[in-house]
Computed example of a mutant assay.
Amino acid sequence: MLPPPCFTLRWCQVSSRRDARHSSWYWGSLTANEAKEILQDASEGTFLLRDSSQRDYLFTISAMTSAGPTNLRIEYKEGKFKLDSVVLIRPKLKQFDSVVHLVEHYVQLSRTTSKRPSGASQSLAPPNGTVQLLLTKPVYTATPSLQHLSRIAINNATRQVQELPLPNRLKIYLTDYSYNV
């Protein structure tokens, strides 16, 4: 079950931050320099979500790339989230109802990309010296609980939680964070 679309900026901020806080990889008001320090010795694809320091954006993804730590602003417009980008690419980027759904999409895309045979990965290198974005490993603010990790595993296995032979209270817990990252 996907979260409802964001109808007002205020409602969206509350809803998105709530979902992000459940993720354990949302760091709140971390600065770009603090994010860089956290990611400095991490492997490529390691990422975290934080509040954007720019007023026009709610969130920023800080990620380790082959060129080092980088920051990607997340744009919120007309009830949808998408990565900020240059004007020519912006219309082609997918939009999402929640910031966690956006991150989930790019994590799944990165997993698909990284599973390709090693010979194929050469053709995936971006042109013109740009850096490919991979989101493969979140940096947690604290170790997630076994309950939360189990919820992610169940959500990864099925999107039909309501059909599982489980108590309603457990179904509510599973659907409260219906993402698999």
Rank of each mutant, 00 (worst) to 15 (best):
C12M: 09
L135V: 03
N155F: 14
P165R: 15
H148A: 02
Q13T: 02
L135C: 08
V161I: 15
P117I: 00
P126Y: 15
K92G: 04
Y106Q: 02
M1W: 06
K94Q: 08
P91A: 13
R18V: 08
N156P: 14
S114L: 05
S62F: 04
W11S: 08
N33Y: 08
D56H: 12
K77R: 12
L48P: 05
S121V: 09
Y179A: 00
K36C: 13
L30F: 11
I74K: 07
E34F: 12
I38A: 06
S15K: 08
N155C: 14
T31F: 10
R10P: 04
E104G: 00
Q162L: 13
A157K: 15
E75T: 00
L170E: 05
L170R: 06
Y140R: 04
V99T: 01
W25S: 00
T130F: 15
L30W: 10
T46E: 10
P69Y: 10
Y140D: 01
N156C: 11
R169D: 13
L48T: 03
E104N: 00
T60D: 07
K36F: 10
S43G: 14
L83C: 09
E78N: 08
L174G: 03
P4E: 08
L93E: 02
A32Y: 09
A32L: 07
D19K: 00
P138M: 00
R55A: 14
Y179S: 01
N71I: 03
E75Y: 04
H101Y: 13
L109D: 12
A32R: 13
V99C: 04
I152K: 06
I152D: 01
S62L: 01
S121E: 15
F96V: 13
R111K: 09
I172P: 02
Q54S: 13
R116N: 08
K92E: 12
Q95R: 00
E163Y: 13
R21L: 09
M1D: 07
K36D: 13
V100R: 05
V87K: 14
F81E: 01
L88V: 12
L134F: 03
I61G: 02
Q160L: 11
V131N: 03
P126T: 05
T113N: 11
H105R: 02
K94C: 03
K77I: 05
V86K: 10
P117K: 06
K77Y: 11
E37G: 14
E75I: 00
W11P: 02
E44L: 03
L149Q: 02
Q147L: 14
N156K: 14
G79M: 07
Q13M: 06
T65Q: 07
S24A: 10
S53C: 13
W11Q: 07
T143W: 11
L164Y: 14
E78Y: 09
P126W: 13
L88C: 13
I38N: 02
Q108W: 10
P117H: 07
C12S: 12
N33R: 05
Q13P: 03
T31R: 11
T60L: 12
P138K: 02
K171G: 00
S98Q: 01
T175L: 09
G45D: 14
L88F: 11
V87G: 12
L134I: 02
L9V: 13
K94F: 13
A142P: 10
S23V: 00
T112E: 11
A35W: 04
C6K: 04
T8F: 06
C6V: 03
R116T: 04
T158P: 15
P3T: 04
